[in-house]
Computed example of a mutant assay.
Amino acid sequence: MSAESKDQIQSTVTGFFQDLGAQLQTYSAEEVVVALELLPRHMNNASQMHGGVMATLMDAAMGLCGTYSLAPEERQVAITLSMNVNFSAPATAGSRVRAVARCRSKGHKIFMATCDLLDQDDRLLAFGEGVFKRGALRRELP
């Protein structure tokens, strides 16, 4: 996928994803990788990566993997029906983390995905899975 197409896909992921500063690193039918350079604003009161930031990255990556489309304007919205996240290690400001997601099962409307959150040394920070529903085409929404 071209850098231009990847940028177009990234721009369709709105809201908190954009506010975090997350970047779409890999977007394919087999795998989606979302990366983030951790800043002080991504930390909790213990100076470690906030669990909500971890969950958001994983949610976005899993949603993108199940709504893959070569044409950015044909990408559907993913609606999270359920998500389970297990936290296994902390990360601190200055670290680069990435959520690596893969679809496990795809139906007509519902898909299931799994995700690992890794640091720059491939240390597992969190892992989880989710069940998602494909919604409207992104171009049909405001």
Score class of each variant (00 low, 15 high):
Q8G: 11
I9M: 09
Q10V: 06
S11W: 03
T12H: 13
T12G: 10
G15I: 01
F16Q: 02
F16K: 01
F16C: 02
F17N: 02
F17D: 01
D19R: 14
D19S: 10
L20P: 01
L20W: 01
A22S: 05
Q23Y: 09
Q23I: 15
Q23A: 12
T26V: 11
S28R: 05
S28N: 06
S28P: 06
S28G: 07
A29T: 08
E30N: 09
E30C: 08
V32F: 03
V32M: 04
V33N: 04
V34A: 06
A35S: 03
E37D: 13
E37C: 08
L38Q: 15
L38A: 14
P40R: 00
P40T: 01
H42W: 04
N44W: 09
A46T: 11
A46E: 13
S47Y: 12
Q48C: 13
M49P: 13
M49E: 15
G52R: 07
V53S: 03
V53R: 02
M54G: 07
A55T: 05
A55K: 04
A55D: 03
T56F: 12
T56C: 10
T56N: 12
D59Y: 04
D59E: 12
A60Q: 09
A61G: 15
G63V: 09
G63E: 14
L64G: 07
L64N: 14
C65I: 14
G66I: 02
G66W: 02
G66D: 03
G66P: 05
T67I: 15
S69C: 03
L70Y: 15
P72K: 09
E73Y: 11
E74L: 03
R75K: 11
R75F: 13
Q76I: 08
Q76Y: 10
V77C: 09
A78Y: 05
I79F: 15
M83I: 01
M83D: 00
M83K: 01
F87A: 02
A89F: 04
A89W: 04
P90C: 10
P90A: 12
A91H: 10
A91W: 11
T92M: 15
A93E: 12
A93N: 15
G94N: 01
G94V: 01
S95D: 07
S95I: 14
S95W: 13
R96V: 09
R96D: 08
V97M: 06
V97C: 07
V97E: 05
V97F: 06
A99P: 12
A99G: 11
V100I: 07
A101M: 13
C103D: 12
R104M: 04
R104C: 03
G107W: 06
G107V: 07
H108W: 10
H108R: 15
H108S: 13
K109P: 05
K109V: 06
I110A: 00
I110T: 00
I110S: 00
M112G: 08
A113R: 04
T114L: 09
C115P: 13
D116S: 14
L117P: 02
L117M: 03
D119P: 08
D119Y: 08
D119R: 07
Q120I: 08
Q120P: 08
Q120Y: 08
D121S: 09
D121P: 07
D121E: 14
D121H: 13
D122M: 06
R123I: 03
L124P: 05
L124M: 06
L125Q: 15
L125H: 12
A126F: 03
A126I: 04
A126G: 05
F127P: 12
F127V: 11
G128L: 05
G128P: 06
G128K: 05
E129W: 11
G130C: 00
